[in-house]
Write a protein that binds this DNA or RNA. Structure first.
Lengths: 201, 201
DNA sequence: CGTTTGCTTGAATTCTGTCAAAGCAGGTGG
DNA sequence: CCACCTGCTTTGACAGAATTCAAGCAAACG
């Protein structure tokens, strides 16, 4: 095992600590090492392509990724963005074993930890801290999605952008404007204009 | 205990069956009876008002409800709709114990089962079927929200409406058009026009 | 009945998207 | 060091989409 891979697991152990007070046992750590498969992606490489089944859910140890669909006209619609400490994957495809309609690729070079559906269920059964993490993540995710939805449905372009900046400062510097625009359901030109009017205030 | 309330719990026991094969024990049923508090709401009565903390998550045994925010201009934005067999509540406020920004009210007379955060954690610990239900619900919810988000961000009015009809036929007849419109992030006039062009095809 | 509630429609307005052009970095190779 | 990419942002002119406002109509309700 390469040094870099040990580091990747350590990053995940640190991450798990945030969810559960009691430290992981050595057995638990070993099981996690056994279950998560490390991988690397270079910028622009695919983690998932539409039509394929999403076999892994992926913890981003380092780097930045995006998940998007492509419509009839060939236009990309960003569904989710992620950086270090975030998860990436098409949960529908992953849990229902159906082909995905999304693409996922690396926006920066990435270090990743991958887990299959079966692996996740196994850890869920055998490691309380993992179970707790999943619970809390679902909770947060639900809340974040709800906010994003509220903003997308109820607000005009300008407020959508300011909401985004408040809720996702960690994404702001990592992706170019046209990606953020797509994430917000705007086009790049509109977002550029929104930013100008904001800067004039 | 009134007959009607027994019926309400039975409806919930039936609901739980869909998530877990093994039947509930009598102890488990008793615990559920003890933990969920039944209530009724008449049309237009509030379950939750913005500014209050959402103390209960609510299982809708019968009826129809809506959750919405009210913006600066006094306009309501429908965030969620629910009918029999659905859950209603502001999960953010309920789990983080913060004041809610949403209103929830009954659109029809409702029979409800209410559970506090503490109650939910208790059942989660002590009843496997409840735990399993929660897992599956989070999964489904995540997927449904993702779809709604994809539609809201990437699609124009007409497609948003057709997507809605596909994914939520059970809501379609239960709420008037202007409510559906708000749920989709459109205004009633626009939805009316969308429907006309659709009917001309 | 009269009132309320919801749906439709037209005209004017505002907002957002499209398209094309230009400018501005940073990176690469000559 | 310069010329040339490439990717990103900004901008203007225009087209298209969605909202607003007002009016009218129908069905439901008390």
């Amino acid at each position: 095992m390469k040094t870099s891979e040990i580091d990747m697991y350590d990053a995940f152990f640190d991450y798990l600590k945030k969810f559960s007070p009691d430290p992981l046992s050595d057995d638990e750590k070993a099981l996690i090492r056994q279950t998560f498969v490390p991988s690397r992606l270079r910028k622009r490489q695919y983690l998932l392509q539409a039509g394929d089944q999403c076999k892994n859910f992926t913890f981003i140890v380092k780097g930045a990724m995006r998940m998007y669909s492509v419509d009839d006209k060939g236009i990309e619609h960003i569904v989710r963005l992620g950086v270090e400490g975030w998860w990436m994957g098409d949960r529908e495809s992953w849990s229902m074993l159906t082909p995905s309609i999304y693409h996922i690729d690396a926006w920066e070079n990435c270090d990743l930890l991958n887990i299959t559906r079966a692996g996740s269920m196994e850890l869920h059964r055998r490691i309380p801290a993992f179970c707790e993490m999943k619970l809390q993540l679902d909770e947060r995710n639900h809340i974040a999605n709800n906010r994003r939805l509220t903003s997308a449905i109820g607000a005009a372009a300008e407020k959508r952008y300011t909401d985004f900046m408040e809720c996702n400062p960690e994404l702001l510097g990592r992706f170019p404007q046209h990606i953020i625009a797509s994430y917000l359901g705007l086009n790049k030109d509109t977002l550029s204009r929104v930013r100008r009017t904001l800067s004039q205030k």
